[in-house]
């Protein structure tokens, strides 16, 4: 194989520390996601947290219907794949019969904030001691880029060919703010994965969420991750991450929305 750009070699790797490596809990297979898709990053972060907290043996995840439907092929924990929108009902069923296990649900915006809105609200309202991970890419990625409840005003999708018209399609749904008022919501935060900095913060948020559950804190730890969908947005990965910064975060500002006083 000939190479036009020479890659740099290192002679003394043995004298260096490995400061970052793929977590063992992330199954070593190529993921099916489009290049640059944030789902992959969120999967990896969850598995980093599972590994660091040493809870692989007691963790059960629930996959949604959406692009991340196959997430059990990557996250090396026991998993159940739920019907579209019902991940938190399934998670409830699991947590209620196995209260000592660590349960998380993983959902897209169509799954969590459209078809599954009732389950979302009531799971949180019951204060299930689980982690809910919400990947908000403002679009229906899996079905080919249709409008999601979180799609921004004016955004062109395959079902809003002239852009989302608020008078016809309603408004982008800020579900995190909505559910934060529920007593069953213990910790609500909105993060992103479009830069190293935001990835670090998302990791911290996930860590906090899982720790909450381990500590048996009453209520849901709700971690929204504003993410991209290069394919659905019809952008390159780099453009999508920039667009996320410039557009998504105006409607979905990052940061903690509800933090329990003791850990604030």
């Amino acid at each position: 194989m000939s190479k036009s750009i020479q890659s740099v070699q290192c002679e003394h790797l043995d004298k260096m520390d490995i400061v970052w490596d793929r977590p063992d809990t992330l199954i070593d297979v190529p993921m099916h996601y489009c290049p640059g898709c944030g789902h992959s990053v969120v999967h990896r972060l969850i598995m980093e947290v599972v590994q660091e907290l040493n809870i692989q043996d007691i963790t059960i995840g629930v996959a949604p219907v959406g692009c991340s439907v196959f997430s059990y092929n990557y996250m090396d924990v026991d998993m159940q794949e739920a019907a579209h929108g019902r991940a938190t009902a399934v998670a409830t069923g699991i947590k209620r019969v196995l209260p000592d296990k660590i349960i998380y649900s993983y959902q897209g915006d169509g799954d969590l904030a459209a078809i599954g809105t009732a389950e979302t609200i009531h799971t949180i309202n019951r204060g299930e001691n689980i982690v809910m991970i919400f990947v908000n890419n403002g679009i229906y990625g899996m079905t080919g880029g249709q409008m999601a409840p979180t799609t921004l005003k004016g955004s062109v999708t395959s079902t809003t060919p002239t852009g989302r018209d608020l008078s016809i399609h309603g408004h982008p749904l800020n579900i995190a703010e909505m559910i934060a008022i529920l007593p069953g919501a213990y910790y609500v935060t909105r993060q992103a994965v479009n830069s190293a900095k935001t990835v670090r913060k998302t990791k911290k948020a996930l860590l906090r969420g899982f720790k909450n559950q381990i500590d048996g804190k009453g209520g849901v730890s709700f971690i929204e991750v504003v993410s991209n969908c290069p394919s659905g947005w019809k952008m390159t990965p780099l453009q999508s991450n920039k667009w996320l910064d410039d557009n998504m975060l105006g409607t979905y500002p990052l940061g903690d929305i509800k933090v329990p006083e003791k850990i604030a």
């Binding site: 290192c10 790797l13 043995d14 004298k15 260096m16 520390d17 490995i18 400061v19 970052w20 490596d21 793929r22 977590p23 992330l26 190529p30 993921m31 996601y33 290049p35 640059g36 898709c37 944030g38 789902h39 992959s40 990053v41 990896r44 994965v193 479009n194 830069s195 190293a196 990835v199 670090r200």
Partner: peptide, 28 residues
């Protein structure tokens, strides 16, 4: 060895190494 690249990499294909001044030798 700041790990930025590894953090944003969706495919988790990076391994990042960093020099450690406090350590004589690591059986890597």
């Amino acid at each position: 060895g700041c790990t930025n690249c590894a953090l944003v990499c969706p495919e988790a294909v990076m391994t990042v190494y960093r020099e450690n001044k406090n350590r004589i030798i690591k059986p890597a």
